[in-house]
């Protein structure tokens, strides 16, 4: 039977990443010792961007999988396909990453079902192997293979916590929104706006984060601030941009929308 494994591209251009702490050095150390990495932090605070940056820095291909609750083991490992009249095995992203010695990034791991995520266990401890049951294949991971997972501890759901048995296999890096100054730099650079506007957007972000738990599940993430900046640099007014990219993105509740409008108008 034929085997298909997707070609994995590596990242040639340096992604823009603004380090906020010791994460770059720690990640390099984990990679050097072939230890899997867990990125904790709220959504939109730069975890994905960080992994892209590290993949570039370590010159390894990157495979990213966004986890969701219908993700099956086959979606990760691979499956048989019929191509023409042949039955062919097609590697899933995880298998492909192991074969190629890539970084495999499982984003929002808690969203996947528990019976799916067990396949990463033997990869994440000292065995470093991937078992592809269907093919009867035991695939040892090359030195360059690195498993990275992320999760957002902000979920209050007990269901969406990582089991300690999983968590303890990983080097954990904690992410949070950057300090106001760094965040303004990021927003200016990513959003293509001047520093003054970036600062105001960051201020707005801070005000919305004050409302976390007071009607908002989460405050505005760096991502949302960058989005607002991008809308401004595409020619809209800051108020329009903030309403569309931040206020409406954060809530559907009419009362809360009104409050966010108030805050937007206070800042600009």
């Amino acid at each position: 039977m034929d085997l298909l494994s997707p070609q994995l591209a590596s990242i040639d251009d340096e992604p823009y990443y603004q380090p906020v702490g010791e994460e770059v050095g720690l990640f390099e150390a984990a990679a050097a010792r072939r230890l899997p990495v867990l990125l904790k932090g709220p959504t939109g605070c730069g975890k994905t961007r960080f992994v892209e940056y590290m993949a570039w820095k370590l010159k390894r291909p990157l495979v990213t999988v966004a986890c969701h609750d219908d993700l099956t083991t086959a979606d990760l490992l691979g499956r048989y396909l019929i191509v023409g009249s042949e039955t062919v095995w097609m590697d899933g992203p995880l298998t492909a990453a192991v074969r190629a010695g890539a970084i495999c990034y499982l984003d929002e791991i808690v969203e996947a079902r528990k019976d799916t995520t067990v396949v990463i266990h033997p990869l994440a401890d000292s065995r470093r192997v991937l078992t592809v049951d269907k093919r009867g294949e035991l695939l040892p991971a090359p030195d360059d293979f690195l498993l990275v997972i992320s999760y957002n501890p902000g979920y209050q759901s007990i269901l969406k916590e990582i089991k300690p048995s999983t968590r303890q296999r990983f080097i954990a890096l904690e992410f949070d929104y950057p300090s106001a100054e760094l965040e303004a730099q990021i927003v200016a650079s990513e959003g293509g706006v001047d520093e003054a506007l970036a600062k105001k957007l960051v201020k707005l972000g801070e005000l919305t984060r004050n409302l976390k738990g007071q009607g908002l599940d989460e405050g505005a993430s760096t991502r949302l601030l960058v989005h607002a900046a991008q809308i401004v640099s595409a020619g809209r007014t800051p108020i329009e941009a903030a309403n569309a990219a931040i206020a409406r993105a954060l809530t559907d509740d009419p009362d809360m929308t009104q409050t966010l409008d108030d805050l937007v108008r206070a800042v600009f």
Partner: peptide
């Protein structure tokens, strides 16, 4: 009241 309370919450940590 409700709207102002949320507004003030947003302003102040």
């Amino acid at each position: 009241e409700a709207r102002l309370t949320r507004f003030v919450h947003g302003l102040s940590g």
